[in-house]
Design a protein around this nucleic acid. Structure first.
Lengths: 348, 348
DNA sequence: ATTAGCACTCCATTGAGATGAGTGCTAACA
DNA sequence: TGTTAGCACTCATCTCAATGGAGTGCTAAT
């Protein structure tokens, strides 16, 4: 639809406006465009076109007799074009840091950091969600008389653990039996497959309807399904100070609060409402599910591990963000993570 | 020494200046003091005294003909008095959140949050340092053919783990023997007691000079001594925007960066250079080991767990921080943590 | 359809008072 | 001798109007 309402010249002008605004952050006037483009049109002509573009809602004037800046709709147009057309080879990303990491956590922290450095925006990376992530190994051990330790290893070497307090000690034999039971029945299952039914089947198989064993099994189930806090790693949050339109103290404070209080970020990153086939989502201004980010744009991509969707990487910046660069970066990183995690899941 | 250079009246005036400045954040003039105190002195007299105080270095003028504000030395004087004298019962702290927590991590996050809420400053809480923390339980298990999982439980239920990649599988028997060996030899030892000597003794006891076993033992040692990232939890970093003197965009950005990049905070919290017998340390302005906090004051306290020093809680705020309230809060929290952790370490 | 030209609008910057808080100093007072 | 009143002076901040410039919208000419 956008295609029919904008002729080629208007598209060129709109793009020129947006590009210029991305660089300068200042409203851009007709004269600038008249020189900047290779259209060889006078500023007056441009003015007419700009007037049209404003009527169509692609650009706005912050106040009478200032230049124009892109509206959310304008950004949206630009970005759609970009993601669709762009598929040029990604600038070779710094690989120095993404080397085989043992710990998911440090890996993801590094990813966030690299991305923040490369783009100069704020970045978020969420740990793989355990939904549809497979159980690889599970073990119960007696720490001392009253404490059991349950350890669960998932695909991708994510390790979870929980201390279980019990009233009286379990003897070694029982423990061994339980471990056997757990491993044979649960290994290879994904978290969302481990529900109440499975657990109660386990309890049954444990034979004795022992109070304690039942309690232990429940806790194990809890360990497995525990939301892992759905960790989010952030980096470069303070980059927002680089963009005057975000750095007045009220907005900045709210934004940084959002980053510190990671809960809402989790929601953001797991928002799958407008999933794109490319795996890259862009929220512009009001489109964002988080209200404190009304004045920002957000680009997210999901990376996969083995089967099923997993974690998300995201970038938060001003609306005039360098979409081109960001999309490239995020695509590249997504690719690398996909590759890395699949490999690690398999052979290492 | 400070006692001899300040007579009682000067002390009163100095305190009045500081208190007033703490509230308002504005330079305070002679007239204000003349009314505010019960000294019944005219502003002129106060001016004379203030002039003296300035010569002595306790207060400074931000510019000619503004009021005076406390210098670092002035704050220092005030704080010393405070910590020494103050020991009144702490305002009853919200206990709602500090209930028996299984996970150290969530507990400490909550502590940081509560403290930030109570004081309206930025807070940091460091996890107990494992130095001189005892080993409670250790276990090696085979996740699959090529991966071993080593899990270590410390006092206070801190769990560490590490995946060990091995070239060829270890048979069950060896594993069992290793576990036995590890537990009998290492349990009860603190981390700093587990050094190369102990490990090589272990290797010897393992009998066979097997390449793999040696490698495994090394990795176990690594797991135990791994620095646990020395986690630091922060909260309320954005509170700095409440204090104009910190919130100009350059300073704020640097400060927030420091909070995000937690590494330097770790150093701050583990700085034991000026340990006080009360366990409470106060850095004022330049005294801080972190340069980005030149314009801040920092109050830290260490809490203990069982034996030996453990973690630290800290508050970062403007120099005109409400020291009284902060010290109370931090004392109270320290007390609760001490109690809680000792209990947990023992019986649970 | 495009362009040149012009009047107009509005923001941002500047500089000149005006204001007021606060000091330092001096002289008077108890 | 310590305290106070008074006064001249300084300096940051606020207000206000003037200025300049960037940019638009409109109209008339090409």
């Amino acid at each position: 639809m956008a295609d029919t309402e904008l002729d080629e010249r208007k598209v060129k002008i709109l793009n020129a406006i947006i590009k210029n605004y991305l660089e300068t952050g200042e409203p851009v006037g007709s004269r600038t465009i008249s020189k900047y483009t290779d259209l060889n049109l006078s500023s007056a002509t441009i003015r007419n076109e700009m007037s049209d573009l404003e009527d169509l809602g692609y650009i706005v004037q912050p106040h009478t007799s200032a230049g124009r800046i892109p509206s959310d709709k304008g950004y949206r147009f630009y970005v759609n074009n970009l993601i669709a057309s762009k598929d040029k080879e990604v600038s070779d990303m710094k690989e120095w840091m993404i080397e085989r990491e043992e710990k998911m956590e440090t890996l993801l922290k590094n990813v966030a950091k690299v991305l923040a450095n490369n783009t100069q925006y704020a970045t978020l990376v969420s740990a793989p969600s355990v939904i549809s992530n497979r159980l690889k190994f599970i073990q119960l051990s007696a720490v001392d008389e009253n404490q059991l330790l349950s350890v669960v290893v998932m695909d991708g070497n994510i390790v979870k653990n929980k201390i279980i307090n019990v009233d009286k000690p379990l003897d070694n034999e029982t423990l061994l039996k339980l471990n056997m039971l757990l491993n044979t029945n649960l290994n290879g299952l994904s978290v969302d497959q481990i529900n109440l039914a499975v657990i109660s089947k386990l309890k049954e198989q444990a034979g004795i309807h022992d109070e304690i064993i039942s309690q232990v099994l429940d806790t194990v189930a809890e360990t497995i399904t525990q939301d892992e806090d759905l960790q989010v790693y952030t980096s470069g949050a303070t980059n927002i100070f680089k963009y005057p339109e975000l750095s007045d103290s009220k907005k900045a404070s709210e934004l940084l609060d959002t980053f510190e209080e990671k809960q809402s970020l989790i929601e953001l990153l797991s928002d799958k409402s407008s999933e794109e086939e490319t795996g890259i989502q862009v929220y512009i201004g009001d489109e964002s599910p988080i209200s404190t980010m009304k004045d920002c744009s957000i680009v997210t991509a999901t990376y996969e591990l083995g089967d099923g969707v997993k974690g998300t990487i995201g970038i938060v910046g001003p609306k005039r963000m360098d979409y081109e660069n960001v999309v490239d970066n995020i695509k590249s990183l997504k690719g690398q993570l996909d590759k890395l995690l699949k490999k690690e899941g398999k052979d290492s």
